[in-house]
Design a protein around this nucleic acid. Sequence first.
DNA 1: AACAGCTATAGGTGGGATCTATACCATGAA
DNA 2: TTCATGGTATAGATCCCACCTATAGCTGTT
Lengths: 291, 291
Amino acid sequence: MNLDLYHVFYVTALENNFSKAATKLYITQPSVSHAIKQLEEKLGVQLFIRTSKGVAITNEGETLFEYIHKVFGLIDTAEQKISELKNLESGHVTIGGSDSTCKHYLLPYIQTFQNEFPNIQIRLQHGSTPQILDKLNNGRIDLGIVHLPINDSQIQLTEFLSISSTFVVGEKYKELANKNISLEEMLNYPIISFSETSSSRSFLNQLFLKQGLSLNPEIEVGSVELLIECAKIGMGIAFVTKELVSKELSKGELFEVYLNEKIEKRNIGLVTRKNISLSVAADKFYKHLLD
Amino acid sequence: MNLDLYHVFYVTALENNFSKAATKLYITQPSVSHAIKQLEEKLGVQLFIRTSKGVAITNEGETLFEYIHKVFGLIDTAEQKISELKNLESGHVTIGGSDSTCKHYLLPYIQTFQNEFPNIQIRLQHGSTPQILDKLNNGRIDLGIVHLPINDSQIQLTEFLSISSTFVVGEKYKELANKNISLEEMLNYPIISFSETSSSRSFLNQLFLKQGLSLNPEIEVGSVELLIECAKIGMGIAFVTKELVSKELSKGELFEVYLNEKIEKRNIGLVTRKNISLSVAADKFYKHLLD
DNA sequence: AACAGCTATAGGTGGGATCTATACCATGAA
DNA sequence: TTCATGGTATAGATCCCACCTATAGCTGTT
């Protein structure tokens, strides 16, 4: 299958003239003559009638042209599309994360990325960490943002952010903010935490478990905003990422409760599939995140 | 533009394996490797990820594949179609002629042709001789069948049939059939002829004009069938193609009126466009007619 | 008759497509 | 660990053929 013959045919059919086609193709007229002859022999039909004033396409040539015309249209479109993808003038990136990671750590990056590459569409997929890893493995998302640690041999992991956890209270329990207290003492107060399935909660559970303590929070919520509100109005001690309450702390709406032991930092990571290349757009966004 | 690269890409994308693609393409693996590399360089994007167990197509490669897949589908279809045309398994022939030429001289050929090539569609276009020549020049018909002579430098003419003209009468004017009469005498009887625009009529006009006589037929009709009927019931002397009334003559329903001079034979010709090739199907039909 | 504009043919040449051979790399089994 | 397997990349040589130049040959025009 020699496709270049079809290219010669295509241009010749447009020009109805071997010599002009040759010029357009940057080859010589005998080459066109030869190529058309080859194609005619291969297909077994005459494609052009040679006249003294150029050539005229035959009926069969016309039929062939209808198809070949589309062929080169498609190739043009394809090359155009690839060029757009390459130059980040089109394409999309699908990112998976929990609502809170997306909202608090991803959104600012998405905004600056969109300013720079307005034609790249950013899509978000919500899910828990295992769900995100699953979507990643199924090719439903390009990259994920999850709380660490994770354990999946198929996954390529890059640490992204390090966040501090702390306990905060509102005006009502302000006196706790002055002294270092132990986890055990804390159990005497109502605890506000994320719901059982969240990674924040399992981190908290682990914290108590290491002291042989069992946690049973009075209040379980599903969003950072609600958690902060609950703490503010004095419903109890809230376990929260420090970076997310810095405004409330500085305004004096919330007060930090210091533990008499150090809480380890938690890490947020970017996950991609091992051995699977990111699309140009996804790769660009990935690098954008790591800047 | 090297289209063969796309062919290598296409097969490789189907196989996800350079070596297997090479086998299918009847080339070696290094050639595939080289071709893909060339295409990647040309497009400026990576198309495949090389892994130890073959290759995996990238996102951009996938996008390209969607188009290229269609491209090769089209080429396959095109080659299929051309092959059908070539082998007379599809296609059509459009023929132009007057109703009577079509009916009396063409129809038998059409039937036998359709038996032999049932998938070739035969289309008929009706019109007067000048209209037929016009349609031919505009490419609306592949070939025409017309009464001669014609005068058109663009037209390629082949004589097809030679027909005799004669005068016939029914029972009523039977006595005329015994003697040779002159054209002048004939004017004493009602004449039945085709309408003014027909070539049969202009032939008849010429016949009289050569003798300095002017014809003014009492009855003008538009079809051979009607003309024969008029003659049969004794409305006058009909000018008619002899071959079309042979049955009536032998049955004794009509009687031939002999002129004291010889009427020239008329010719029917096949016309095609000069310098324009017939399609395979049209050419086949043309040859079928001349057999 | 000469010209202009086109295609076909002949024959020679160079570049590049393709090949062979081999390196190299990852994976899985012994 | 070592070896075998199955894949891709690279190097270098070969040789074919795609393309070129030159020219013939055809047709319609000036």
